[in-house]
């Protein structure tokens, strides 16, 4: 591994100071499950490594008003075992519990997952389904933006909007209410230690009469960033959620995947079909949750 200077700041202010000082030559280290492997294989060669794992204040799941805030250093293990997330935000609980292996879930953080912004990032798919926003901080001050904008952004790398002196401090989203169901399904070659073939999320909110007033459907590994099934969402909104209505969206999912991935014939034939099986699983989970809820 190439030589570098190593810092382990104890406060956020100290971390921001180091980032300001070293800028592009520095790399943030959180759990290490992406970056240490990249460094070991010679794909990343920072001159300075800033280990932020000692910033214990950035590991939390907190409810503030109608929103859930999750610190950037919260591990997948913490997320998947958090009672509020398990009860209220199944899309995230399920995605977090399917990341890598127990070892990887104990090290890997949500901030690292969103910053890496892998095509197959399960945290990315879940957070996009939740329409989450991220908070970035630096000595210049804080800014926040929707995750979609973060992923589209051109920061110090083309992966995301992070500028050289910035650190992600948290991600937050609207807490699903009593009329909202969410689900995630990971299609992969095996249950553990398998990269997603499709990592799909779904959120449906209904009114007192069971009419869909909000829908979010995002599929990981189907485009550079989780594929947005817009036509399917629009088909649900304004209608009463039923198995038939949900099934009517299947051809739309097929077509969206075909359009997105047709330049990749080796995977598109499989994925345009399997996406429908994946969403059938999600429909079942969504209906089960909505039926279990009182609609007042």
């Amino acid at each position: 591994m190439k030589a570098f200077e190593f810092f382990a700041p104890k406060t956020l202010a100290e971390a921001k100071g180091l980032l300001n000082q070293y800028g592009e030559s520095a790399a943030i280290l959180a759990g290490g499950t992406d970056i240490v492997i990249e460094m070991n294989e010679g794909h990343r060669k920072p001159d300075v490594v800033i280990d932020i794992k000692k910033l214990k204040d950035l590991a939390y799941v907190r409810i503030e008003g109608s929103k859930i805030h999750i610190g950037a250093l919260t591990t997948f293990e913490m997320i998947s075992s958090d009672p509020v997330i398990r009860e209220r935000v199944r899309v995230l609980a399920e995605a977090a519990s399917k990341v890598g292996s127990p070892q990887i879930r104990s090290l890997g953080t949500i901030g690292g997952n969103l910053a890496t912004a892998s095509v197959a990032g399960d945290g990315v798919s879940a957070m996009m389904t939740l329409n989450a926003s991220v908070v970035l901080d630096s000595v210049r001050g804080q800014r926040q933006m929707p995750l979609a904008e973060f992923l589209d952004g051109q920061g110090v790398s083309s992966r995301n909007a992070l500028l050289a002196d910035e650190i992600m401090t948290e991600v937050f989203f609207e807490m699903p209410d009593n009329h909202t169901a969410t689900a995630f399904y990971k299609l992969a070659k095996r249950k553990s230690l398998a990269i997603s073939v499709i990592g799909a999320g779904m959120l449906v909110q209904v009114d007192g009469a069971g009419i869909c007033i909000k829908a979010s459907m995002r599929g990981g590994c189907l485009a550079r960033y989780p594929l947005h099934f817009k036509a399917a969402e629009e088909h649900l909104i304004g209608n009463k959620i039923s198995i038939d209505l949900l099934e009517e969206t299947l051809p739309m999912l097929h077509d969206a995947v075909y359009e997105s991935a047709k330049s990749r014939p080796w995977s598109v034939f499989y994925k345009k079909e399997s996406v429908q099986g994946v969403y059938r699983k999600l429909f079942a989970a969504i209906l089960e949750q909505l039926n279990g809820k009182s609609y007042e």
Partner: peptide
């Protein structure tokens, strides 16, 4: 945890 994913400083 898997120690191949961790830098010594961690």
């Amino acid at each position: 945890v898997t120690t191949c994913c961790m830098l010594a400083g961690q």
